[in-house]
Structure formats: C-alpha cells, structure tokens
Nucleic acid binder design. Sequence first.
DNA 1: TTTGCTATTGAACTTATTGTACGTTAATGA
DNA 2: TCATTAACGTACAATAAGTTCAATAGCAAA
Lengths: 187, 187
Amino acid sequence: MDRRQKKTRSAIFNAFSKLLAEKSYNKITVQEIIDTANVGRTTFYAHFETKDDLLKALCEELFGHIISSTLDCTHTHGLYSSGNAPESVFCHLLQHLQENENNIIELLSSESSELFLRYFKDSLNKLIENQFVNQNRKNNTDIPQDFLLNHISGSFVEMVLWWIKSRMKQTPEELDRYFRAVIEPIL
Amino acid sequence: MDRRQKKTRSAIFNAFSKLLAEKSYNKITVQEIIDTANVGRTTFYAHFETKDDLLKALCEELFGHIISSTLDCTHTHGLYSSGNAPESVFCHLLQHLQENENNIIELLSSESSELFLRYFKDSLNKLIENQFVNQNRKNNTDIPQDFLLNHISGSFVEMVLWWIKSRMKQTPEELDRYFRAVIEPIL
DNA sequence: TTTGCTATTGAACTTATTGTACGTTAATGA
DNA sequence: TCATTAACGTACAATAAGTTCAATAGCAAA
C-alpha cells in the first residue's frame, strides 16, 4: 500500500477517535474530521464512502486487534478450563482494555459508546462461542445454549461499561473474580 | 393543556415512532417528521428544541409508563420474594413488552435501539434498586452491591435484545425461567 | 356569542453540511 | 528518470436545520 495512503488513513482514524472522545458520533461532521486530520475533502471520500463506513472500519481495526491478540494468548486454554488460572480469557481482555491501546476505553466511555458496544459484543460472541463448545458444562441443558452465550457476552460488556463508569477503580483481576462469581455458578 | 397542543404532540410522537421503526435515528430528518405528522415546521420547534429533545421526551413517556405500571403490579412483592411466584417483576416487564404497548418492541429492534437501551436500562436500575434493598441475599458480601445491580439490569436488557433478535419465539414465562436460572444462583 | 389569548400555519431566509467534479500539484515506486 | 496515482483546493448543487414573521384558526372564559 502506498505510503501516502497509510498516512492519510491513519490521520483520519486519529482525528476521528479524538473527536469521538470529545463529542457524540452524530454531532461530528465530515468537515471537522478533515480539518482535524488535515486532509482534503476529496481525499476523505476517496478512502471512505460515508461517516458510517469510517466507523465500521475503525471498529474492525480496534476490536479485531484486541480479540485476535486475546485469542493468541489463550488458544491453549478453554474459557475457564484451568480452574482459577490467572490467564482466563476474560482477565486477558480486561488487561488489554486497561492498557488502553488505541484509546478503546475513551471510545467506550464516549457518548457514542453504544456504537462500539455492539461491535464489541459481536467480537466477544465469536470469541466465546469458540471456547464454549470445548467446555464441559453443568446440566443446564434445559437452558438454550445461545441464551447462555448471549448472557455471558452481554454481561461482560455491561460489566466493562460499569467499570468505566465507576472510573476503573478495580483491577482486572478483581473484576475477573466478580465476573466468575456471577458466571461460573451457571456453567 | 390545550387540546391543540396534545394533538400536535401526539401526532409528532406517532410520526417519530413510525419513522424510527423504519429507519435509523440519525437518518430521520425533521422534515420527514413534520411531513408524517402533518404539522408545520414552526409548530415542531415550538414543542421540541431539537430532534434529540424529541427522543428524550419519547423515551421518558414510554419507559416511565412501563416501569411505573410494573411497580404498581408488584409493589407488594419483592424481587423474587415469593419464591417462584408468577408475578415476578421481570415476568411482568416481559409481558408488558410482549403486549407491545406503544411499539416499544419495534423501537428496541430498530436500528436506533442503542438510544433506547440506555433509557431502558436506567429505568430498570431504578426499579431493581428499590426492590433489591428489601431482599434477603446469600453471603456474596465480597461482591459489591452495585456490581450485582448492574449485572442484573444489564443482563435483563441484553436478554430482551436477544429475545427480539430471535423473533420473540419464547414466551415471557419461559424467558423468566431462563433469567431466574442465571440470576438466582448469585442472589 | 363575543372576545381575548394562543397554537398553528406557511413562506421566506440564513447558515451548515454533504457529496461530487475537475484541474493542479506532489509524492511514490519501478 | 518517468509514468502513475494520491492528495489538494476550489467550486458547486442539493439537502437540512433552525429562525423570523405576519396571517389564520381554535380554544376557553365572560
């Protein structure tokens, strides 16, 4: 890929992230993005069809990265297969979030958090689904599996939101313990 | 309140709901709203400052109604205090949703669901918080109470979303049973 | 019914934003 | 070096937001 393209793409992403941390998605104009990114109007539309398109691309980059890196770290373990091993998938995710690469936390706490949440949850679902099938579960066979899946990823997302809202006072390990306490009894 | 005001207000609400079921919030224009509602441009701005203001008013009306009506039905009971009483708060809520007063379901399944979700969850939180304090719980005292609160209301919202996404195949009673199965073990 | 008040109307208008067109400039990689 | 192509910037049409104002119509009380 052309060096110029990479440069503009990244400039636009950065500008967009910066603006998203400041104001709500629908109040951000293309004009502001290109002003902040310091690129021409035509250039923007050469890269992205619309603002929605830009958001989609940003989300794919952000969550694709965090999920695949978590997968790498834990591909040898199940969801919680090593008992209370510190290297649980969820703990890894929380640690990644705390390190806040790419300002995911800022985006999740922005006014447009809902937009990211859905992408986040979708990514999580794929991640958990993979690990879930290899899991030996209790006899909750009367509860549908996709209900449980949704419950787990949904609860996790809501917990992260709660974490951010309460200013991330807890450590990832603490949070992981809370999460186990409400999830493990039903696995 | 003047009969004319009521009429206009309701016409705008109806038009807005109809449009929200069809398309995403940020793609709806004021022009479309006033065309659908058959009111003048000036009239719209006499009632609502912005489109966001309209949304807020709609949410307050919708969720305020459903929550207070659930409160009325269950003010004599705790969260689940009557064992597996059919008149649990959650079952009531689900039944209300299924009856689909005011098209809440359509709004929650629209592309703009995120906007309603936060209102929904906020309302839920207040509702549950009230009932929660009167509840005799197990010895999960090492898990913060507001974490549990958030977990319950968050899970409920995510469950409703899952319900809608899977076309509401389950009955409210079934769903309530699923929900108990994942929530009661931690209470 | 009359009267005063107020909500609604419609049209015009300013400003802001979107998305496109096109000729020019400058960086890139072979 | 040279052909390619990304980026620039200016201009432009189309659409939308929000305001102003005079005119109209509906309401509630006398």
